[in-house]
């Protein structure tokens, strides 16, 4: 059972949260302008790195707020959680080392 730090509520057990997949995959500005392939990329394709991964969680049994976390997919260690845009230091460490 992971202990996850909700940015609003503090450290809470994993059972209170729901996983939301890869973070920072925005809904396209104008879906109708995309090709089938580009739309399929948005719908179906996500990164699956061995290592640092930025992902979404929602504190469903708490404040019901969405936030982002940086987790190592090998160790499950969550090094930080944050709201909104990705912190700069995470940008360079995505993917397998």
């Amino acid at each position: 059972m992971l202990m996850i730090e909700c940015p609003h509520c503090g450290v809470r057990p994993e059972g209170e949260f729901t996983y939301g997949g890869q973070a920072h995959v925005p809904y396209p500005e104008d879906p109708q302008a995309l090709t089938d392939e580009e739309w399929a990329q948005y719908l179906f394709y996500r990164d699956n790195p061995k290592g640092t991964f930025r992902e979404r969680w929602v504190h469903s049994a708490g404040c019901r707020k969405w936030f982002n976390a940086i987790r190592d997919t090998r160790t499950y260690d969550i090094t930080s959680t944050y709201l909104g845009a990705a912190p700069a230091e995470a940008n360079s460490t995505q993917g397998a080392q």
Binding site: T18, G20, R56, V58, S60, R64, K65, W66
Partner: peptide
């Protein structure tokens, strides 16, 4: 949850 997700994110 669906409504909250689209609104919040």
């Amino acid at each position: 949850e669906w409504l909250e997700e689209w609104h919040q994110t």
